[in-house]
Design a protein around this nucleic acid. Structure first.
Lengths: 219, 219
DNA sequence: TTATATTTTTAAGTGAGCTTAAATAATAAA
DNA sequence: TTTATTATTTAAGCTCACTTAAAAATATAA
């Protein structure tokens, strides 16, 4: 039996909520791989703690306090990922799961020291921004999903979704990594797949994969 | 084994057992600050897992398997302590508690990488030996508790018990740290307290404190 | 609008690891 | 050796984060 903590719920809500900041219980349940009933249960507790705004059958929102907690967890997660990748040289696809555990086992103070040691990185190894001590999240130029780009568009890989390690292994193998320049060589309306030039080679990616790779476009 | 409690029991048994390798349930209960009944409960489970040898009302022993697990946890703990102290520059008295949490949240692989990054340290910041990947524990010259030393004995501080952070803060304040040379200036039969010269100053320590400081004696 | 499907909540129950209280075994003192 | 003390185990019960199944609310389709 998995023991998913309040911290995980908050992070999940933060990451999965829509543009209006709302989320349905079902989505949380799917993401954390638990029953919807467990989510209802926990939402009541989080609500009692003043961490989420919860009304039966309505969309859920984080309170300001809940959001602070969530951002703090994400900060910890991304700093640990950076440490594991940059310092311990762990492979790209393993750092997410390790960081997932470490983020729950380190005090704010420890993580502040870690940030200092890493020299205040702004982005993690997958290209996600690292919130600072005050919850401020660095912005870089807007990014667009590779799946949304058109033939002949150019840009630089800025971010790759990190929640499926399979995706990261695959991307690595194809020579796809943060900071690489790419050009869209072809795009099939038929299945949404794109062919890009990255480094010396051309690679074809399914729509699903392309939608998890984010590009900083070139003007 | 992803179970925090079981890991804690094994470490506790390893650390608290007597010279014959045995331990009474009561001692575990006191150390983990739980009821003796909870210990009985868990011992049955550990026994079922083949980690301890348990017979009602008899002394408890770790099995070979249990000992491997315990040593591995201690390895993780001491490597994390070393990292927190040497790399993140966390204060001496805080690293024990932080390492206590991290040790349960890091894979063997991660810890191996950490060890490599730290350049294979042999002792942690409190002077305890760090088991290697194979469970081999470095030995340094034998040490003796400061409380067992006699007037005019000399030596070097090799180890300070780390399970009461209060003790570490106190020691720090008195200028006591690993590697320092000391001389026993006086010892009172009355209460077992000792006065030592360390660096420039003389400090008096109760028997209890002296029994938690270990010295590599000078011949 | 009504019927149907989907989502969410409630209700009842589980296992892990703890608690207190009572019973039993081992140890120490008279 | 008997008695008193201390240590350990058993028994019953609690909380937490889950589960499944059923009920209720909401959303979608005919």
């Amino acid at each position: 039996m998995k023991n998913i903590s309040k911290e995980d719920y908050l992070s999940a809500i933060y990451k999965l909520r829509d543009d209006a900041g709302e989320i349905k219980p079902n989505l949380i349940a799917e993401n954390l791989e638990i029953s919807p009933a467990a989510v209802t249960d926990m939402l009541k507790k989080l609500s009692a703690d003043g961490l989420v705004q919860y009304r039966k059958y309505k969309g859920i929102k984080l309170t300001a306090k809940g959001e602070r907690y969530a951002v703090n967890m994400i900060r910890k997660h991304r700093l640990w990922e950076t440490f594991l990748y940059e310092v311990l040289k762990m492979p790209w696809e393993k750092i997410h799961d390790e960081a997932e555990k470490l983020e729950h086992s380190s005090s704010d103070n420890l993580v502040d020291k870690l940030e200092e040691f890493l020299n205040y990185p702004k982005f993690d190894p997958h290209g996600y921004p690292i919130p600072d001590k005050n919850g401020l999240i660095p912005k870089h130029k807007p990014v667009i999903a590779l799946s949304e780009m058109n033939k002949n568009d150019k840009g630089v890989i800025a971010r790759i979704s990190d929640f499926k390690s399979e995706l990261l292994v695959y991307a690595s193998k194809k020579g796809i990594s943060i900071g690489q320049k790419i050009t869209v060589k072809d795009k099939l309306e038929f299945d949404g797949s794109v062919t890009i030039k990255v480094g010396m080679n051309e690679v074809s990616l399914s729509r699903k994969i392309a939608s998890n790779i984010f590009i900083m476009m070139e003007e």
